[in-house]
């Protein structure tokens, strides 16, 4: 997996197949923004994504589709330094 250059820009995850409406909506109406239609469902292909990650002392880029051929457990959680 390629190592990521560390910079100070605020990089975040991207979902290449998702609708691009987020960028077309003015910031003030962001809270009323519609939730993208692409929502994961069982029995359907998992939405691919690419995002920066911390991995064993390094910063890398992770792409879900790089793990094709393996089982993946994808685990979301509310935040670092929370208690549960």
């Amino acid at each position: 997996m390629e190592e990521q250059d560390v910079s100070c820009s605020r990089v975040s995850g991207a979902v290449p197949d998702a609708p691009v409406e987020a960028d077309q909506v003015p910031a003030e109406s962001a809270s009323q923004r519609e939730v993208p239609r692409m929502v994961a469902r069982v029995g359907q292909k998992a939405p691919d994504f690419a995002a920066p990650a911390y991995y064993q002392g390094s910063f890398t880029n992770v792409k879900l589709s790089d793990f094709a051929g393996k089982w993946v457990m994808l685990c979301f959680y509310p935040g670092d330094f929370t208690f549960v």
């Binding site: 939730v35 993208p36 929502v39 998992a46 994808l74 979301f76 959680y77 509310p78």
Partner: peptide, 23 residues
Amino acid sequence: NIGRAYGVYDEQQGIEMRGRFII
């Protein structure tokens, strides 16, 4: 963005729910 695609992102709180997916 990833949380939205998986339906676990809470727009009000700006956090992600405890979502676990087996792929």
